[in-house]
Design a protein around this nucleic acid. Structure first.
Lengths: 209, 209, 209, 209
DNA sequence: CATGAATGAGGTTTCATTCAT
DNA sequence: TATGAATGAAACCTCATTCAT
């Protein structure tokens, strides 16, 4: 259920084009400066629209924020779809499926690392509505991971006491690559970080001989 | 080196008392509403001071923010001191020392969970100065953990490829109890969360037989 | 090198118009009430702009002060140009040239008497930058007078021991018509004041037979 | 008629002592920073009184300003008395009397140059009442000079068209040593300035042979 | 007689949104 | 459909003065 956004235009195609332009420019600015410190005027300038024009396609600054978050979540939706299609079935071993899924998750999150960091730093200022929207996609990711972990436990490959905690850890540690860049930037490449986290994860959950 | 804060009073004891009152009230409001959305007037009202009075003990709103962060860091400093005194020596086995330290870290962070969450959500808007101040304490925690992990590797109890990543994970997952309350609140008690994270940690790093 | 002043408009012509309006209204108010006791709100009201509008064409109250001073200095710049063009050459006798120049100087200063008085009363509170800007124009006037006086000394028409003091006296006494209106207003017309000061000046410097 | 200043004390002697302390400290601060930018708190600190104590001897910040100006005018009153006693009679030649008087005037004003500059820069902010008070002393000086000049005209030593203008010039140029220090400081000593101004004055008014 | 903690009205500046052209 | 000038509420900080002790 997308947020209803006011527009003074009736040309649906044009609306879509303009909104995508707006969201793209706004995303960059929001990420760089934060939501509050970005002026609508700046967003307009960044996408070559006057303020009047911008307000023809968008009802408020909040609307733009919603658009940015929604745009940002698209790759994660892609991740969910892909995993659901490929890794949730019984055809692959749980360990393999988990590893592939985690790898894909990390890569997806790295793709949108700016948005991820932005959400961490600004979500407090989100209205309930928006926070829930951002949280939902994430919950779906956790959900998928829980399913994979559960399957591994059932087959005896994994031994886990609290599946939600493990699933949650996976997601959070994927986020941290973006959120705590200041710590990792000069220490590791993404590939090393990913490989190491997967190693630790597997070791922590695999059933012992 | 504490930040120099202006005061119009010369009664050091009173200054300390008032500032503690201010920091306490401000912390609550900052955590609830964010820094920008909290008015100085509100802080004054919350601690029963007029704005004029408040500004006798504090030079600016920024000063209050510094005080809040500094106050918040005190328990963590205590943690650092305690661990340095008790667990860094050779008298205890690395595994025991690590477990005690992690437990203490989690408990300490839980104590100041509001501040921790606040820092996560607002640090992006902090001035360099303040960000560094908040980051420093955390780096000290990571540092201590790295030492403990290194000792465990040397004795052969642990087997770790990238110590900084493990240390970092420990701290981050401790934070997450505060930052992502919305996820855990209705699922686990703090004790279960703590116990489970420790179990996962130990399993992920212990040398295999 | 004019001060860079922020504006949110890109219509240069409009900016110029609005700024002139603002400077004009502000000048009146500054002169009447002083800088500190004039509110930006008042300036806005005086030129029919809301505060928001005013701040579209001006970055700060200080900017307005700069504009007022710069506007005020324009006639003096005109004076300098005119004298440089007409009276600094050898074509006119030094006495004639001096007399014409002083007359023009007095008339110019009378034109901007409000600004002159304002600068006397407020320059102490100006930032270095602005004080220098206001002082520079005046130094140019003194400089021109020194040249004229020096030429008169060379031709033997004048006999002066300390040229800078005489030049300085000329400028100061021209200012005084503005600064000390309370003394002269009910005693003399501008023309009598001017004529008399010129007479005294000439007598004080002319070489005796 | 001195301004009536409120006091909570009834010990007249103590009142006088305290007020003198206050005026002295305040004068320094007013001169250095201007009236508005000097806090009552600062004045208190500068003369070692708490704000409460200060307000026992003084009714308001304005009162302090009055005291400072009145204190500052005392040397000028001395000048007036001395000249009245010594130079207004017929016993000395007008030229001699004028020269001595002008010299004394310049010296007196130099003594209180800070206050003189302060009055120039701040008098705009004075209430009518105070402006008049400061102006009155000055008018007395001008008056004395006018008498001396008039006598010289009567004896035929001077030839002056507009006596008030000359008298006024004398006073103003004496002030300028204080007000425009930035111009003279690096060019002349006080003695040279004084001597030169007297020479110019005499030449401009003496009757020709 | 002395103290200094408390008060609170008042001025500058920001920036999302509207609406006439 | 596009423009951008205009609006004005809202928030930080200052500092003279009072009054309980």
């Amino acid at each position: 259920m997308p947020r209803k956004i006011r527009s003074f235009s009736s040309n649906q195609k044009l609306i879509a084009v303009r909104r995508k332009q707006i969201a793209k420019s706004a995303a960059k600015l929001f990420v760089k400066q934060g939501y509050d410190k970005t002026w609508v005027r700046e967003i307009g300038a960044a996408c070559g629209m006057s303020m009047g024009t911008l307000y023809h396609y968008v009802g408020s600054k909040k609307d733009i924020l919603y658009m940015v978050i929604d745009q940002g979540m698209i790759p994660l939706q892609g991740f969910i779809d892909k995993v659901t299609a490929n890794y949730l079935g019984d055809s692959i071993s749980p360990a393999k499926a988990l590893e592939s899924t985690v790898k894909l998750l990390y890569q997806t999150i790295e793709q949108i690392e700016d948005i991820i960091a932005f959400i961490y730093f600004e979500s407090k200022h989100f209205e309930k509505d928006l926070a829930k929207r951002a949280g939902q996609t994430e919950m779906q990711c956790i959900d998928i991971l829980e399913q994979l972990l559960a399957r591994g436990c059932k087959t005896g490959e994994f031994k886990i006491v609290e599946i939600p905690i493990v699933a949650h850890n996976i997601v959070v540690l994927a986020h941290m690559w973006s959120v705590r860049k200041w710590f990792f930037k000069n220490r590791y490449t993404f590939d090393v970080y990913l490989k190491e986290q997967i190693r630790l994860l597997i070791k922590s959950i695999k059933a012992e001989a």
